[in-house]
Structure formats: structure tokens, C-alpha cells
Design a protein around this nucleic acid. Structure first.
Lengths: 333, 333
DNA sequence: GAAGTCTAAGAAATCGATTTCGTCAAGACC
DNA sequence: GGTCTTGACGAAATCGATTTCTTAGACTTC
């Protein structure tokens, strides 16, 4: 563990010696400062011959800055977040940045650890898909490290955020069910402490009021996970007056809810279902389920763009980008 | 971009000043070297009061070593690799390491770039799930940076690798189909340049020879992607003497193959199917399809364990760990 | 009591690239 | 011809923690 990586390490000084110039000049060539054509030629030749790669650690220490951004997400195994990650990566890569993916498992302590690491590693910025509960970004702000919240805002007007119009999505999801003749439309949403869960539910509630539907008796809070969705749906189906349709606030809970429906001998045709976000390989849409489109990749791209602007020095007031959720209207099959 | 992160930065010197000792002593306290109890108390108190976090960049520059490992995978959106990533992360985290996830999209150039970054960033080691084609790990070896190949070996006996017994899996998958009375068992495998594709196919071929089956006329090479699987299955079904069953060499191609079966009006009961690796939320197993268990998470954990051993200084001969594929025998539903 | 260990801890070198500062020479301008 | 600019570039400081060296006591040991 001590003398790891002891192999050939070419430093800027060796390049300088070979080119017959000073280290400063080598650095200037590498960073595009003014240098004579002759020096540049010599340096480039020497660097190529020695296969020189600048030591990023040293550069970072000096510059107090690195071209790496941290993406902190609650669950690498959730397709929504991996699609989001891909969006971030695409955009970041185009801007010359690398992305470090940090998985918190919805654990605030792990989230906090990763924030510390991002700071200690001099990362250029942080994109945070907040874990359950209140995330503490104050340390980042104190060090002027750019942060963008994605998917969920942090309820802080001073921080950039990229979200979708969750309330509108909830509203149109429920409306679409009412429009198709369902009358008892339930809602299975996420933890009440989570902003997206709250907003999606409010959209549903608003539609319910318009149609004089049953109200909060058909509302269930679950945990945004498969098992929670299954349990909530089972509970709803066991009611004396069960619903005939439901809005489910995320993809994983919908997978569970679908299981519960099957267990009860129901199909997505008999029982209306509208879901926030699809699943790859198990497309809800192809099963004839209404899907509120969550543009995960676009969320990631937008968040990365915002962050890159900040890193480039933009210090205007915080912006909140809200992407549209275009509910898929067609019920296929 | 210049004066980012200009906020409060506490250095070891400030801690030293506050504790009334030298920076060397602070470092010793932090790294567990011999220090008097009194100094230690003073330093810890000062560090706590100032909320000191050591600057990892500086530490890394001096130590020529960081507690970060790179995990290079071909596709973040493939559940197999995210499960593998989770395994790596679990094990690494337990050992005090962070994991940087690098997504190559099966592009050798991107893989190569990430390898350079890993070196330039002084990462402690690299776990590589090789992209299509020949990966060049020579630079890592030259710098004595530990590498472990996972999923696919690099055909280099001098490099640690963690794989599954692909041939045995292919064999038992095909055998299970023959045992259930299918007689024309096809095979849809990955690119011929990819080791896993080759071995899985060979297992299938071996079973075919035992049962005097049709031979390579029922073999198709595809690309390990959904569309490739769909096309290959469509092609097989269009044969004058089509197969009545197939071994499919990965999860994505199986999803496509299943589509093609449905398009042809076939079910996984009428047409026997055995697949390498399942998909979450769209479990093949639950659809009555035979699944060769690919222990993705365990692969990741084993790879990380191996790498951590190397990082800790183990320089014994290269090891190859082969995990078992326990084919799920029960055909449910 | 003198010579020989230890110990704790400070001063200073070090890791490798960047950047400031200053020098030197060539050309511009009066 | 002399002063001013300007551009190229080397010497040295810098980033912050770690790791030698060194030194000053304290403690043995004969």
C-alpha cells in the first residue's frame, strides 16, 4: 500500500529537460498560454516521446479545482436514476467533465458523507437527487461549491433545481382515468416528507375534487418501493368500497401494485392505472397502462447544463427548471 | 472558474496554530502515529472546533495514492451492470474506499480515456468489465496499478479475473430444454469477439452434440442488445425448419427475443426459452422461462475483494475466480 | 556521573503542476 | 540615441498534507 504505482512516472520537469526549456514553459504549452512556436514544437515533441500525462492531483491542488462533478443519487438500481445519470454524463462529458456516481441508498448519513468527499476532493460541483429527508447542503454553499438539485427541489429558493411539473402530471393522470369512465380513483404516493410525492398527490386530489370523487379515503402513502406499492394496493382492494382505478406516484410502486392486482385477479384493463415513470423491459405503456412521462435523461442533461454554467462562473439568481410531463394518452394493445 | 471554492478552508496549519503544536504533530494525530496524550487531546479539540477536514488532494499528491477505485462498465443502464456496481460499492465502502463509476457505452476509445483518467487521478485500482473488443490494460500494468477484470476475462493469465462458469451454464440451459422434450434447440449468443458469448454458445453446442441436435444451423450471433435479440429470433422463426426452443445468452437479447415470439403468436410455454441473467421488474423466471443465474452482485463483491487484496499489497500470482451459475430449474406458473 | 537509548515534536523537504515575478532582448516611438 | 513597450521564458513561490531529518529532553545502564 505504500509504494504502489511506482512505475514510470513522467513529470513536467522531465519533459522540460528533454525539450531544453523550463517547467513553466511546458505548463504554458499545455495550458495554451503564449509561447514561441519553436518552444511549443519542442515541448510537444518531448511530451509525445515521453508519453507524458499531467498529474491531475498536482494540478488540482494548485488550481483548487477539478474537472469532476459528483452525482449523488438514492439508488443506482432504479432505472429512473440510471437514465438520469446517463443524461448527466452525456452533458458533462461534452463539457470535458467526468462524473462520479455516488449511491446513497436513501440514507442521509451516506449522502452527507458523499458531500464531504466532494468537498475534500475539490470537485467542481455537485448534482444532488436528494435522499429521503432534509439534505444539508450548507457546507457546499459555505465553500461556494456549485450545487444543483434534481428531481426534488430542496425547498430552498437559493439553489438551482430541475424538476418536472409533478402537480400537473398528477392532475392529468387522474383526469385521464376519470375521462375513461373510472369513478373511484385512488392514489398511491410516496412518503409524505418527499416533495414529489406530495405534489403528485395534490394533482390527483385536485382532479378528484373536480369530479366530486371520494377524497382522501382512497389515498395511501407508501415508500416509493415495490413492496410498499404492493401492500398499498392490496389494502385498497380490501376496502369495503374499493377503488376502480389508481394513480401511482412512481415506477417501482406500480410494479408492486400490478402484482397485487394480478393476485386479486384483476388486469390493467379492468382496473385503471396511471403511473409516473415507466420501466425499461417491462414497459407499463405496452401493457396498456397510462404513463406520465418522466424525462429522466433530460432532467439529467438540464441539471448538468445548469451546473456547468455555474462552474463557468454564472452567479445570477438561482433558477428552477421545470420540465413537462407529457402523459401518454394512448392506451395501447 | 478561477476562484471557485474560495470559502472557509481550514488547513492543518490553522489547526496546528490553534492547538499550539506543529503541523507535523497534527498530521501524526490524524494518521495514528505516536503522539503524547496531551498533544492528541489539544489537536483533536482544535480540529473539532474548526471543523477541520483534511484536503484529500494534498494528501493524495504526497502519498501518491488515493482511496478511490474506478469501476469501468459498458452500460449503466443495463441492470446486470448496476447490480454488479452495487456489489463493488458495498465491498469497497466496507473497506473504506469510494467507487467512481465510468460508463463506456462499449466504446474502446472511451474505455481507454477512463483508464488514463484512473492513472492521472492516482486511483488505487481499477475494476474493468471490458467493452467489446480488446482492452488495453498495459498502461495500468506499467504503472503497477492493480486491475481486476470482471464478467469477461481479458485472456491474460497475468490479470485477476472474476467470471462465471459460462460453458457449464450454456450446457445446463440447453440440457434443461432437451430434458423437457424440446428437440430443435437454437442459440442466440453475443458477438463472436466476446468471450462470454463464445463460452455460452460452446456449452449449448456441447449439449446439442450429445442429443444429436441440428448443429450450428440454429446458431445466431447478435449484439447483446434488445434489437439484436429480436432480429435473431425473428430470423430463426422464419427458417424452413424453425427451432422449438432457444438458449439466449443475455437478458437484453432475451427481452427482444420474447417480443419476436409474441409477434409470432408464440408463448414461452410453447417455445422453450432459457436465458442467461434475469431482469428486475420483468422477471423471466416469473414468466416461466428458465434462467441461468448470473450472480451480478456477487461478481462485483468478489472483484472488489480481489482488488482490495492487491491494493493492500498482495502480489501473488493472478487468480481467476469462477462463480457458479445455478440454473433455476423450476419452471413456474 | 558519563555514555547510550528512546520519545516527542518542530523545521524543512517533498509530491508535481501552476502561477507570480522579474529579467532580458527586440522592436516602437520621440 | 535613448526610453518605453511588449513578448518569451526562467526562477521560485505556491497549493496542503505527509514524511524525513534533527534536536532537546527524559530515562537507562554500567
Amino acid at each position: 500500500m505504500r509504494d504502489r504505482m511506482a512505475g514510470s512516472k513522467v513529470t513536467i520537469y522531465q519533459v522540460a529537460a528533454r525539450a531544453g526549456v523550463s517547467a513553466a514553459t511546458v505548463s504554458r504549452v499545455l495550458n495554451g498560454a503564449r509561447v514561441s512556436a519553436e518552444s511549443e514544437r519542442l515541448v510537444r515533441a518531448a511530451a509525445a516521446e515521453l508519453a507524458f500525462t499531467p498529474n491531475r492531483t498536482a494540478r488540482r491542488l494548485r488550481r483548487q479545482y477539478s474537472e469532476v462533478i459528483a452525482l449523488i443519487i438514492p439508488d443506482v438500481e432504479n432505472p429512473f436514476f440510471t437514465a438520469l445519470a446517463r443524461g448527466v454524463e452525456n452533458r458533462a462529458r461534452a463539457g470535458g467533465f467526468s462524473v462520479v456516481l455516488c449511491n446513497t441508498d436513501d440514507d442521509p448519513a451516506r449522502e452527507s458523507t458523499y458531500i464531504d468527499i466532494a468537498l475534500a476532493e475539490h470537485m467542481a460541483g455537485v448534482i444532488l437527487a436528494p435522499a429521503d429527508g432534509a439534505s444539508d447542503v450548507s457546507r457546499l454553499l459555505a465553500r461556494k461549491c456549485p450545487v444543483v438539485a434534481v428531481d426534488r427541489s430542496l425547498n430552498r429558493p437559493d439553489i438551482d433545481a430541475v424538476t418536472v411539473d409533478n402537480r400537473a402530471g398528477g392532475l392529468s393522470a387522474a383526469e385521464s382515468l376519470f375521462a375513461d369512465g373510472f369513478s373511484r380513483v385512488a392514489c398511491i404516493t410516496g412518503p409524505s416528507s418527499v416533495e414529489t410525492a406530495q405534489l403528485r398527490m395534490e394533482g390527483w386530489r385536485q382532479a378528484g375534487e373536480r369530479h366530486g370523487a371520494g377524497g382522501d379515503g382512497l389515498l395511501r402513502y407508501a415508500d416509493y418501493r415495490v413492496d410498499g406499492g404492493r401492500a398499498a394496493m392490496a389494502e385498497l382492494l380490501a376496502l369495503r368500497e374499493p377503488p376502480d382505478a389508481a394513480v401511482v406516484a412512481n415506477n417501482l410502486m406500480a410494479a408492486g401494485a400490478l402484482d397485487a392486482l394480478r393476485d386479486a385477479g384483476l388486469t390493467p384493463h379492468a382496473f385503471g392505472l396511471a403511473v409516473f415513470g415507466d420501466l425499461p423491459f417491462a414497459s407499463f405503456e405496452r401493457q396498456g397502462i397510462r404513463v406520465v412521462d418522466l424525462p429522466a435523461r433530460e432532467l439529467g442533461e438540464a441539471a448538468a447544463s445548469l451546473l456547468l454554467d455555474r462552474i463557468a462562473g454564472d452567479d445570477g439568481p438561482a433558477r428552477t427548471v421545470v420540465l413537462r410531463t407529457d402523459r401518454t394518452l394512448k392506451e395501447k394493445q
